[in-house]
Design a protein around this nucleic acid. Structure first.
Lengths: 214, 214
DNA sequence: TAGATTGTTAATCGATTAACAATC
DNA sequence: TAGATTGTTAATCGATTAACAATC
C-alpha cells in the first residue's frame, strides 16, 4: 500500500484521539469509534492501521496503549527525530510551548535567534543559541527538522542556512513559498488560507453555497 | 460546479501568488505559470478560476490586478467579514500580528482575554476586551468568525461562548476536537500533525519510503 | 494567418467505501 | 453457536487531467 500524505495525517489524528481515550482510562477501541471521531469510515481506519501493522482482534478491537505505540513506531523512527526552531518571537515561543512533551520521539532541542538578549536563555526547556552557531549545532546534535518562525523577509535565508547545515525537512510558518532543493520536504502552514476557508464556509456565504464540513 | 474545500484552498493560494507577482510589477499571468507555482496542472487553475467568473483572454492570460479582485470578491463577501480572537497569549499575539492587513476584507476587530492587565490595551491595532463582554461585543459588531488561541483546557468553553454569541465559524488552534453544532464550521490547525508529517517525509525515513512532496 | 491560450467536457486516476470471508 | 469485528479486495465515487473547439 502506498503511504500518502493523507494516511500520515489521519494516523497522527488517530494517535491524538487515542491519547484522549487513554486519559479517560479506556483500554480498547473499535475502528468505528475512531471513525466517528475522525469523521471517516471504519474501513478507512482499518485500512490506515494496516500500514502500522499492529493487529486488532475481532473480539476486542484494538488495545489503546499498544496501538499508540504502534503508530508512534510507524510515524517516528525509534531513535527519535531531532528538531530545531529558528525565530524566538511570539510565534516561536508559542510553538516551543505547543510542542513541549506532545510526542515522545519529536524533540525540539535547540532554538536560534539573532537577538543577543536571548542567547543561552532556556525557554520551555529549550536553549536559545545565536544564529552564527546554527550550522555547528545542527551538525553536532544531528538535527533533521527545522521549524521556521522568523519574519517573512528572513525566511528564505533561514531555509537556506538550515538546508545547508543538513536539515531534511522544514515546517514553515512564513507566508512565502520557499525555494528549496527537491530532496527537502517542506510543509507550509497556510494560516491565511485557513482563515479564508472559515470565512467562506461560515454562514456568511450561506446564500451562495451551502456551508458544510469538508 | 461544486465548490470544495480544496478549491477554496487553491484559490487562496493563487491569491497569495498573485500578490507576489503584483509586487514584482507583473500585470499578466497565464494559467500554466500559476500552475507551476501552485504545484498543480494548468487545467486545474483554469477550472478553479471558472468559479470566480473572471474571464481570461487567450492572448493575454489573466490580468493580475483584476484577478486578485475577482478572487477577493468570490472568497469574501463585499461587506467584509468581522473576526475576533480569544486568548491573547504568545500565540494570540502572533496571530494578531500575522493577520494584520493580509486580506482587505477579513478584519480582526476585537480580542478577548481574562487577564485584566490587557483590558483596553490595543495590540497590533486590535483592542482587547474582558471575556465578560464577549457576547455583547460580538452582537454589537456583528462578528461572525472566532479564532481560538486559548490554552487547551479553556477551548471547549470558549467555543461554546462564541457560538452562543452568534459566531458561525471557528479557527481553532487548541489541540482538541471541539464539540459544536453541525451548522458551525470549524477549521482545526493541527500543528502536531504537520510536524509529524515533516518528520515522516524527511529523509529520516528514506530507507522505508521514498520522501516526496505531496 | 499561425500559434498559443482559454473555457469546458470526456477520460483517467486515485482515494474512499462497500462487501465479505476469516476470526474471535 | 450467534453476533460482531477484523483484514482485504472489488466497486464506487470524486477529483484531476487530457483533449479540443473557440478565441485572441
Amino acid at each position: 500500500m502506498r503511504v500518502s500524505d493523507k494516511n500520515i495525517g489521519r494516523l497522527s489524528l488517530y494517535r491524538f484521539l487515542l491519547d484522549t481515550l487513554s486519559n479517560e482510562g479506556i483500554t480498547e477501541v473499535y475502528s468505528h469509534e475512531l471513525a466517528t471521531a475522525a469523521n471517516c469510515s471504519a474501513a478507512q481506519v482499518r485500512r490506515d492501521l494496516m500500514a502500522v501493522k499492529y493487529p486488532g482482534s475481532p473480539a476486542h478491537g484494538y488495545a489503546v496503549d499498544k496501538l499508540v505505540e504502534g503508530i508512534d513506531n510507524f510515524l517516528n523512527p525509534p531513535e527519535g527525530v531531532q528538531v530545531c526552531l529558528v525565530g524566538v518571537g511570539n510565534l516561536g515561543r508559542a510553538m516551543l510551548d505547543y510542542f513541549t512533551s506532545r510526542r515522545p520521539k519529536l524533540h525540539i532541542i535547540a532554538a536560534f535567534d539573532c537577538n543577543a538578549a536571548l542567547f543561552n536563555r532556556v525557554i520551555q526547556g529549550v536553549r536559545c543559541y545565536p544564529m552564527t552557531r546554527l550550522g555547528e549545532i545542527i551538525h553536532e546534535k544531528n538535527i533533521k527538522v527545522g521549524i521556521i518562525t522568523v519574519p517573512t523577509d528572513a525566511a528564505q535565508e533561514v531555509a537556506e542556512l538550515l538546508i545547508e547545515a543538513g536539515v531534511a525537512g522544514l515546517l514553515n510558518f512564513a507566508p512565502i513559498r520557499l525555494k528549496t532543493p527537491t530532496h527537502t520536504f517542506v510543509e507550509n502552514i497556510e494560516l491565511t488560507m485557513s482563515l479564508e476557508k472559515v470565512a467562506y464556509f461560515s454562514n456568511v456565504h450561506k446564500t451562495k453555497h451551502e456551508a458544510r464540513k469538508p
